[in-house]
Amino acid sequence: MTLSDLAADAIAALTDTRWSVTDAPAHVPARPGLYAIFGDERAHRELGLLEDAGARSAPDLPLYVGKAEASFVERDLKDHFAAVPGSTARTGGSTVRRSFAALLRGRLDLHGVPRNREIPGYFSMYSLAGDGDAQLTTWMHARLSLAVWAAPVQMSVKLVDVETQLIQHFTPVINIDRNPRKLARLGVARKAMSAEAKAWRPAQAAREAERGQ
């Protein structure tokens, strides 16, 4: 199949059946491929997208399109959503979670901290203070749904090239890279949380513990 054929097939799959985050483990295969994250109307409202003139936002459009090089289960259900029993999603290791956290910072009272507080650095890959990760996960479970396209076995086209085609087709507001209509406000919000993580000091650890960490 050509790149155009694969992209068309993926678009059809990602706009067909989708599952709530909590139901997805029963349906999503442990396969590589592409996934799309959708939000309900309340999610769009709480993310501030309904009032954002620059956002192409509606519940039937994906908020984010990404790729799982090895397995949807490992990358999406565990890393992003903590939807598999025993898994714990960490915002510091998920650009998707960092973007949602940045847009929900005020609503959920989220605060950026270094991903590794023993050796602070890489502040753009911020984690969340206190019980922020748990709050974000709860919000994602309640407000988001997931659709997947499993890549054909021995696909000759690079998965990243199909992903790029879909990002350019949907222009999802949470995607930053390769998005011709990326949400400028998202970049500003992420920088604010990065700055907060950079300003974090060890003395804050006690206050974080009081917040539930």
Rank of each mutant, 00 (worst) to 15 (best):
R107G: 04
L136D: 01
T138H: 09
E69V: 10
I119P: 10
G132V: 13
A101V: 00
R143G: 03
S94Q: 05
S124A: 14
A142C: 08
N116V: 12
G93P: 11
A134V: 13
A134Y: 05
G132F: 09
V113M: 01
S145Q: 03
R90V: 12
T138G: 11
P114N: 00
W139N: 06
A102S: 10
R90G: 02
E69C: 09
G112H: 08
E118N: 15
A102K: 01
T137P: 07
L136H: 05
L104G: 01
M125Y: 12
G121D: 10
M125W: 11
K78C: 04
F100N: 04
A101D: 01
P85A: 06
F81L: 03
D76G: 12
G86H: 06
S145T: 07
L144A: 06
F81Q: 02
S99F: 09
E69S: 13
V148D: 00
E69A: 13
G93D: 07
R115D: 06
A142K: 11
S87Y: 04
A129G: 15
R115N: 14
G112V: 06
A101M: 00
L77Y: 03
N116E: 02
D109I: 09
L110M: 08
R117A: 03
N116H: 14
V73W: 05
A70N: 11
R115A: 11
L108G: 03
R143I: 02
A82H: 02
D76T: 14
A102Y: 00
D109S: 12
D133S: 13
M125F: 12
A147I: 11
E74P: 13
T88N: 03
M140L: 15
D133T: 13
I119E: 08
S145L: 04
R75F: 03
V148I: 07
V113S: 02
H80C: 09
F100T: 03
A147V: 12
L128D: 00
G86L: 00
T95D: 02
Y126R: 10
A129D: 06
S99A: 15
A70S: 11
F123E: 01
P85F: 03
G92I: 12
M140C: 10
D79V: 14
D76V: 15
S145I: 05
A129S: 15
S99W: 07
V148S: 04
E74A: 15
G121P: 12
A147D: 00
D133Q: 13
D133M: 10
R143F: 03
L136V: 11
D76S: 14
P85S: 04
G86M: 02
F123G: 06
L104Y: 09
N116T: 14
L103W: 05
S145G: 07
G92E: 05
R105K: 15
A101L: 02
L103E: 00
A89Q: 07
E118L: 14
W149R: 01
A147R: 09
L77V: 04
Y122L: 13
T91G: 04
F72D: 01
F72H: 00
E118I: 15
R75Q: 03
G106A: 06
N116Y: 11
H111G: 05
V96E: 01
E74V: 15
F123S: 08
F81Y: 06
W149S: 01
S145P: 06
A147F: 09
F100L: 15
M140I: 13
S71R: 10
T91M: 06
L108D: 02
A129K: 13
T95A: 10
R75T: 01
A134T: 14
